[in-house]
């Protein structure tokens, strides 16, 4: 068993779809225009804030979606160049220096649009790098995705999206550590993972 396995928890009872996590990720990781590693989806329809049902019998739930950092990631199996790989601590990474841009990882991933492909040179609104200083530079012709802010973890910080959540709906920590906040929550709360039937073993848990 590995010493460490990072996991993220999203409390769906608390999430209000405010998009603060999405923007924190966008800023912190200096994401190019139109690239979002963490998106907010609404049940009920493809448009934002779409309730399910009909007036006045309605419900509305949000779900934030980023790379699920699977235990058995299909993207890693699919990548012909080993540009997509899993670290010891469970983080699934994308090596921009190796990536061929074949997009097999995108095709193999059972989750929709958690990866982005830089078809052209990444474009930004500002002519200088924003966000965390240590963020890897994105390249043309490569695929990018959520890294659990691995550089922040190395510095003892939380991922950008977790740190800022206004309703404290996001948690991050070591799933192998039985005393971590995430382990305790998983032991006490009901949760689900996305597309369990695919057998990918996501490291992102949704508290329900």
């Amino acid at each position: 068993m590995a010493d460490k396995r990072y996991g993220m928890l999203v409390d769906m009872q608390r999430c209000i779809g405010c998009h603060t996590c999405a923007i924190a990720c966008k800023q912190g990781n200096n994401l190019p225009n139109d690239v979002w590693w963490n998106r907010v989806l609404t049940f009920g329809g493809p448009a934002m804030d779409t309730p399910h049902g009909s007036f006045p019998n309605l419900e509305m739930k949000y779900l934030t979606l980023n790379c699920q950092h699977c235990e058995d990631p299909p993207c890693v199996a699919a990548c012909p160049a080993q540009a997509t790989y899993k670290r010891e601590d469970g983080i699934v990474m994308q090596d921009y220096e190796i990536c061929l841009g074949c997009r097999m990882c995108i095709m193999a991933c059972p989750y929709t649009q958690v990866r982005s492909y830089n078809e052209k040179n990444p474009e930004y609104y500002l002519d200088f790098q924003v966000g965390d200083a240590w963020v890897e530079k994105q390249q043309k012709g490569t695929v990018t995705k959520c890294t659990f802010c691995h550089n922040r973890l190395d510095k003892g910080l939380q991922p950008n999206c977790v740190e800022v959540c206004p309703v404290r709906a996001r948690y991050f920590g070591d799933l192998e550590d039985k005393n971590s906040e995430v382990s305790i929550l998983l032991a006490t709360r009901k949760y689900t993972r996305l597309l369990e039937n695919k057998g990918t073993g996501p490291s992102v848990f949704y508290l329900i």
Binding site: F43, L63, L65, P110, Y111, T192
Partner: peptide, 9 residues
């Protein structure tokens, strides 16, 4: 209408 529908590719 399900979670899988929403997030599945």
């Amino acid at each position: 209408y399900s979670m899988d529908q929403l997030v599945g590719a």
